[in-house]
């Protein structure tokens, strides 16, 4: 279940009922249910990651030796993925100064 952030006072049932309209309360409830569901999925993914990493260490035969790659996408609380810098684009060629106009032979 989603935790109340530490620096926020939890709202009481009366606060919610008296200070928000029914549509907001309904939308908030649905969002809260969805957030709890997603947090459970995140927790399950981390449980599986721990299991897979343990299996890798079992294959290696020693703990704390294998260097695991960083996550492929940025996730909370872990080092950001290492992105290779894009190769520098060659600077656009400077336009050559226009040749002085030749006097027309009339």
């Amino acid at each position: 279940m989603a935790k109340t952030p530490k620096n926020m006072e939890p709202l009481s049932f009366v606060d919610i009922v008296m200070h928000a309209d029914a549509e907001t309360i309904k939308a908030a409830y649905e969002a809260r249910v969805k957030v709890d569901e997603l947090l459970a999925q995140r927790e399950e993914a981390y449980r599986r990651i721990a299991e897979l990493e343990s299996q890798v260490e079992t294959v290696i035969g020693e703990e704390g030796v294998f260097v695991f790659p960083t996550p492929p996408l940025p996730v909370a609380g872990l080092p950001a993925p290492t992105v290779k810098p894009a190769p520098a684009k060659p600077a656009p060629a400077k336009p050559k100064p226009a040749a002085p106009a030749q006097p027309e032979n009339a």
Binding site: A31, K34, V35, R42, L52, F68, V75
Partner: peptide, 26 residues
């Protein structure tokens, strides 16, 4: 090991998707 690491990567993508969806909602 390569198979295990691929599966681990897929689980990290799942973590990222969950976090993005939560931040989208909130």
């Amino acid at each position: 090991i390569i198979d295990l690491l691929r599966e681990r990567e897929a689980e990290f993508v799942r973590v990222w998707e969950c976090e993005q969806a939560i931040q989208g909602l909130l």
